[in-house]
């Protein structure tokens, strides 16, 4: 049994251009670990969406990844403003992104829906004023 691999990333809240570093790093590691291309792609897309959310909405946050040959688990935790209505935030096209973010091509309201769509397991918990916690997993056999 291979020992699980743990990766830690910090997404800064003040430098929007650095969002994407964690997903790029994860992708290259998954490739060298021999994960199936389809699983790599789904994990990278989901994590990238998560990074963008942390940078835009949460003022930064932490990402913890745990890898086994069967699972890519990703945990995203922040101490941002929280999401008042999760069901609404999960609906495609809903966005609270400010205009300057939208002008960069982000904020289309597809972040959370895409994270759910590209992963096999997805859960979200959020408390207004305290932060948001997302757990998602991509199964390599799936």
């Amino acid at each position: 049994m291979a020992e699980p691999i743990r990766l830690d990333y910090v997404v800064p809240g003040d430098d929007f251009t650095r969002a994407g570093e964690a997903s790029a790093d994860l992708k290259s590691r998954l490739k060298s670990l021999g994960f199936p291309p389809a699983a790599i792609r789904r994990a990278a897309i989901a994590l990238y969406e998560g990074e963008i959310n942390l940078a835009i909405h949460a003022g930064g946050g932490r990402i913890t990844v745990a890898l086994t040959p069967e699972r890519i688990e990703m945990a995203l935790d922040d101490e941002g403003p929280g999401i008042p209505d999760i069901a609404l935030a999960m609906s495609e096209g809903y966005s609270t992104a400010p205009d300057e973010v939208r002008s960069l091509g982000f904020g289309a309201g597809m972040g959370l829906p895409n994270m759910k769509k590209y992963t096999d397991e997805f859960s979200i918990a959020s408390t207004v004023g305290e932060g948001t916690h997302i757990r998602m997993a991509v199964l390599t056999a799936g």
């Binding site: 291979a2 020992e3 691999i5 490739k31 060298s32 670990l33 021999g34 291309p37 086994t68 040959p69």
Partner: peptide, 20 residues
């Protein structure tokens, strides 16, 4: 076809062991 020449090992357990 994909040529996985950048992979660390020939299977998952070898790749994981080599990664660590």
């Amino acid at each position: 076809e994909y040529q996985p020449v950048l992979e660390l090992g020939s299977d998952a357990s070898e790749s994981f062991a080599r990664y660590s």
